[in-house]
Design a protein around this nucleic acid. Sequence first.
DNA 1: CTGTATCCCGTATGATACTG
DNA 2: CAGTATCATACGGGATACAG
Lengths: 157, 157
Amino acid sequence: MPVKESEILEAVRGDDVPQMQVDALIALVGDMELHGRDRSDPMREIPARIGDRWSLLLLLLLRIGSFRHATLKRLVAATSAEGEISQRMLTLRLRTLERDGLIDRTVTPSIPPRVDYAITGLGLSLLERVESLMDWVRENNPAIRASRDRFDALGED
Amino acid sequence: MPVKESEILEAVRGDDVPQMQVDALIALVGDMELHGRDRSDPMREIPARIGDRWSLLLLLLLRIGSFRHATLKRLVAATSAEGEISQRMLTLRLRTLERDGLIDRTVTPSIPPRVDYAITGLGLSLLERVESLMDWVRENNPAIRASRDRFDALGED
DNA sequence: CTGTATCCCGTATGATACTG
DNA sequence: CAGTATCATACGGGATACAG
């Protein structure tokens, strides 16, 4: 029996866990890709990008059109509720998105240089799934806020 | 004209941006909920939870069944590719998930005390959308890895 | 068993200055 | 313009000890 499997049996021992659930837990481990093999696994990093401060906004902007580095910086400042993005983070996030194949970077050698960023097909298809997630949040925003209010009210006693 | 709108016009001035794209950019700002009003907005925090180290795994486990605090800690160790979760983070993540209404916490006063965690309908419906995102990553994992390899190879010259 | 309190570290992010 | 380098800061996360 695999090590992980015996770990699961050990983990639930003493609790009254139905065999069906034990099987489901084992299946969860069996498909390691479900939660990612390690922290550099796309299965972990893509959701992390969606959750970080700037990547998603950059993808949303680049879905509208291709923009230059400096233009993108100004557009972030104009569209984000959180203010400006530092030049450093703009470069870092764009590099990571490019590395994962979600956006393209095109350099036009000239003086001054010109660099354009564009979303890729891969990036577009990712945005579709993320939109579905964002739709869920929009729909359930009131429920989440209500739950938070209830939770916070209890702590004030 | 709203402030943000003129900021956008300013941002793209000099670049040859079609009117359609300008309109789309303005629409993006118009719907502030699209990207969230601030960092405590569910629109920002829910994706952040999906991207953090433990929340998603906890939801996946609780979808299989309801478990006690200590059991959950052992199950994370048994199923995660990243090893154990600290007691501190387990409590913090569970509290946040509970506060947002994604899981329920049931206390049974006894000695020793017993606390069970269960996923809610809200949590289940969120997981459906997240599954769709995870499916995308699974499907496109090879493409992403290939893109990374290409990108990294260029830097080695 | 189910937490809370403290201290510590690594990484994401920011501010500023400098370069081709 | 499009970066890079350097230093500074905030926060997620971990280790350990302690409490009801």
